[in-house]
Nucleic acid binder design. Structure first.
Length: 853
RNA sequence: GCGGGCGUGGUGAAAUUGGUAAACACAAGGGACUUAAAAUCCCUCGGCCUUACGGCCUUGUCGGUUCAAGUCCGACCGCCCGCACCA
């Protein structure tokens, strides 16, 4: 008996599907559409197991929905701009464009070997002008709609590389590559007004019912709506006041100090005449902006000597500090501190010897006796020491104090968001040029639509630090489109999240060149019905895309609000880690077991320690190359392994034995059709079947329902288990039994159809071997015979005092009295009741009888 | 520090969402076939007690609610993920 030859079979069907254009789709208003999309990859060079998992999940959904009659759009493309290309250019002296395009070719070849049901005619790469020209136009439309603007903002500047660094590229205050001390610099940067949609982006999260709660919570926290008030504190001896934002206006009578950010105008102003303060500000700015850096930093303040006058308490003067924990980007960059009810303010007050006055007393406290020790009281309670607020609850006090402040003109109710506008300028080469021109006379001038695209020049010199566009004299110098005088192009490029914020819409009409996508195609295909990708994009990519969709709507491109109706976030692919005695990481396939059952390196023989399973990463070398697996076992085996055992949103452990198990199952399936009687078809006669044979046929039809339900809910591991059960059932058929041959043929047929989304190549081969002349990839999903899935009897558990004492086969939906009588008649039940009478009998029809004595 | 999640056999997991815990696999052990191996097939496989029939226990720990708890509630322990000192 020949073993299943995956190499020949997989290549054969991939070619058939491609030649027939099985997966090419067109808008068809007659059919329901289904758009399934996996997050497109950055072309880093080769696919990794994370890609294999992601694309397998999407492919199962796409093939299943196609079989269910949907017009399925399932595209693939390349997120092709980004920093790795520039790094590779510097390290290997290869042009970023060449490097990127070669990587795409290699990865496309690898993806094609997986047999994924993409409509490859829709493929595009975002680094090509045919793509990015449209986002240049979108940017100009945003500019006109007031959704894009330029402002000065602080960036991490690496003085050696002459470039801006992301937070994660700053390590201990130094550039990750140059090691130079990073400076905070103010640069004029382009921003998109995502905050204009803050409330909408937050509120609409509720509508995203097919998104994981986890992601919705993360986005909600990121947007960070808070309700509070602005409060104005006059500054003694100055004309200007201090505007503060607070979420606890109720604690205003407990205020003992004010504090401003190191970058607050007041701080900068005072620093001009105080070198001490200037030094303190510089120290604050040196502190990293990453959370870890701020976390470990001690809370420090610098007394400015200025006093803020309390808006509600006559003669009350609060010292104004510059403090390292106040952020310029949030609220007004200034706070009042109430140490009694904020731990950070309490720490600060103790350090600098400031008053601590409790103004909220917990319900349990003795009136007048409540004091604050080491812990601030942040709970609800009754107002004390607070003038007209005394006796009110916290919420009432908030309203009352705001009302009073508003009446006095000393404050107002306010809603604030943590969300900041999206800075899109990058001082980098390998990105989409920002289509504006800077003219000394006219200022910022948009590139006229007819001059788009602004094409990224290919002839650049990457050997020197800094952005090569800024050194490219020919490209950079142009005439002002408005006045015709010499001017300069913007040399910044877009953040690469720009490209991925609308690519899903481009797939709807990827070939049109006068616009990013046509309205009619967007109307038909969008939103994406099911989006699948990694949890690492839970906030930024998904939030930017949600914003972009709204911005495009405002500019008339489309009519939807939400780009992704359903979201599935897959878990990581993990593998055990290995290190030798010197602590060096080792590749899994260089580790073997020796005669003494010990782990050793396959060549040197030195001892190896097996570490815990972790996310596959190059740095820990615990990687398995998908291409090796596909060559050795085939794409179907890799797919099956990815889907078996673990639910998609959980982490998956890659194991060799698991792969072997998947491969054995494939061969077992293959033997199923090899041994099939495909000759003269004996008609199926239900009445002639014995019970065991009928059960297998019934199992096959029931499996249609259970597998469908599992696939609908993305419980792929359970679907695989059901298919294994059916396989076990078919294998157990007694060949000589009457009607066994036609039952076997029908059951295998159903099995093959249900396997099709998971093991497309093998299933197609089995389908053909069974004598079908149509393609399984174009065959509708099977339908269960209602007669065969109906159950006449059910197994009911019988308990005495909650303990299982036996089971009963009862006719379905039988009377409770019958169930009760049958249960009481069981020997095990009478024994367990030990002569006692039943006090109570609980019956859940078709499920359980519980006798309580 | 805050927020979210998870904890079930040697391992990955399942449990119709409060109703027979451990489906389906992996690993392990035993057997059949074979000159032998591979492949394949069959059996055993949570723990303890029992020759057997069977019994008792078991879902991180301790309590609670309920006729009934892996599932709900409270406290604790452990692990993972995310983050914003957010006023």
């Amino acid at each position: 008996m020949a073993r299943y030859n995956h190499k020949i079979t997989e290549a054969k069907w991939q070619k058939v599907w491609e030649d027939r254009g099985c997966f090419q789709v067109h808008e068809d208003p007659e059919r329901p559409k289904y758009y399934v999309l996996e997050m497109f990859p950055y072309p880093s060079g080769r696919i990794h197991m994370g890609h294999v998992r992601n694309y397998t999940l999407g492919d199962v959904v796409a093939r299943y929905k196609k079989a269910r009659g949907f017009n399925v759009l399932h595209p693939m493309g390349w997120d092709a701009f980004g920093l790795p290309a520039e790094n590779a250019a510097i390290e290997n002296k290869v042009h970023p464009g060449k490097w990127t395009r070669e990587n795409i070719a290699e990865m496309r070849r690898q993806l094609k070997s997986m047999g994924l049901s993409y409509d490859w005619t829709r493929e595009f790469a975002t680094c090509e002008p045919e793509y990015y020209r449209h986002e240049q136009k979108m940017f100009l439309d945003f500019l006109e709609a007031g959704l894009a603007y330029r402002k000065e903002s602080l960036v991490n500047w690496d003085p050696v590389e002459k470039t801006v660094l992301a937070n994660e590229q700053v390590v201990d205050g130094k550039g990750w590559r140059s090691g130079a001390v990073v400076e905070k610099r103010k640069l004029a940067q382009w921003n998109l007004k995502i905050t204009a949609f803050a409330e909408e982006l937050r509120g609409d999260l509720q509508e995203l019912e097919r998104w994981p709660d986890k992601v919705r919570i993360m986005q909600e926290n990121w947007i960070g709506r808070s309700e509070g008030a602005y409060v104005w504190f006059p500054i003694s001896g100055r004309d200007q006041g201090l505007q503060v934002y607070t979420t606890r206006p109720d604690t205003l009578f407990g205020a003992s100090f004010c504090a401003v950010s190191a970058n607050h105008p007041i701080a900068l102003d005072l620093a001009g005449s105080s070198s001490e303060l200037a030094t303190f500000i510089a120290e604050c700015n040196r502190m990293g902006t990453s959370e870890a850096a701020i976390e470990t930093a001690e809370k420090l303040g610098f007394d400015t000597g200025l006093k803020a006058r309390h808006p509600l308490v006559e003669d009350c003067q609060l010292p104004i500090y510059v403090a390292n924990f106040v952020l310029m980007e949030y609220g007004t960059g200034a706070i009042f501190g109430c140490p009694g009810h904020d731990q950070r303010d309490l720490d600060f007050a103790r350090k600098y010897g400031l008053n601590v006055v409790p103004v909220v007393a917990p319900q349990s406290a003795e009136p007048g006796a409540f004091e604050i020790a080491d812990e601030a009281y942040v709970g609800d309670g009754t107002m004390v020491n607070s003038d007209f607020l005394d006796g009110l609850g916290v919420d009432e006090a908030k309203s009352a104090v705001i009302k009073r402040l508003e009446a006095l003109g000393a404050g107002e109710r306010a809603v604030n968001y943590r969300l900041r506008d999206w800075g899109v300028s990058r001082q980098r080469y390998w990105g989409c040029p920002i289509p504006v021109i800077h003219c000394d006379v006219c200022g910022v001038v948009p590139v006229p639509a007819e001059d788009l695209p602004v094409v990224l020049p290919e002839d650049v010199n990457l050997d020197e630090p800094g952005n090569p566009l800024a050194r490219h004299a020919i490209w950079k110098h142009v005439d002002c489109p408005a006045c015709g005088k010499p001017a300069e192009r913007e040399t910044d490029t877009f953040d690469t999240f720009f490209e991925s914020s609308w690519y899903f819409a481009r797939f709807a009409s990827p070939q049109v060149d006068d616009i990013g996508f046509t309205k009619s195609a967007a109307d038909y295909w969008l939103p994406v019905d099911q989006y699948i990708g990694g949890i690492e994009h839970a906030v930024l990519h998904l939030l930017y895309s949600r914003f972009f969709t709204r911005a495009l709507r405002k500019c008339g491109y489309l009519d939807i609000d939400e780009p992704f109706a359903g979201l599935l976030t897959q878990g990581m692919v993990c593998h055990a880690t290995y290190r030798d005695d010197d602590g060096n990481w080792l590749l899994p396939d260089t580790v073997v077991t020796n005669d003494q059952d010990a782990l050793v390196h396959h060549q040197s023989g030195v001892g190896v320690t097996r570490g815990r399973s972790e996310k596959m990463s190059k740095s820990k070398k615990n990687v398995v190359d998908p291409e090796h697996i596909i060559k050795a076992y085939g794409a179907d085996t890799a797919r099956l392994f990815m889907l078996s055992d673990s639910p998609p949103d959980r982490d998956l452990d890659w194991t060799d034995s698991g792969v072997e198990g998947a491969w054995r199952y494939l061969n077992r399936l293959w033997r199923l059709v090899e041994g099939l009687d495909t000759g003269a078809a004996e008609a199926l006669d239900l009445d002639a079947l014995n019970l065991a044979t009928l059960d297998v046929l019934r199992l096959a039809h029931k499996t249609i329902g259970s597998v469908s339900a599992d696939l609908d809910r993305f419980h792929f591991n359970k679907a695989v288990a059901r298919l294994r059960e059916l396989t076990n059932g078919i294998d157990g058929l007694e060949r000589a039994a009457p009607g066994a041959a036609p039952v076997r043929r029908e059951a295998v047929g159903i099995l093959v159809q249900l396997l099709a989304p998971i093991l497309p190549h093998l299933a197609e081969e089995m389908w053909a071997t069974m004598g079908h002349e149509t393609l399984l990839a174009e065959t509708p999903w099977p339908e269960a015979n209602p007669v065969l899935i109906r159950d006449d009897t059910v197994t009911v558990a019988v308990q005495v005092n909650g303990k299982l004492r036996g089971t009963l086969e009862l006719s379905k939906d039988c009377a409770n009295a019958d169930a009760e009588a049958a249960a009481l008649a069981l020997d095990a039940v009478t024994a367990a009741m030990d002569g006692k009478a039943a006090r109570k009998i609980i019956i859940v029809p078709n499920r359980i009888v519980n006798i309580v004595t």
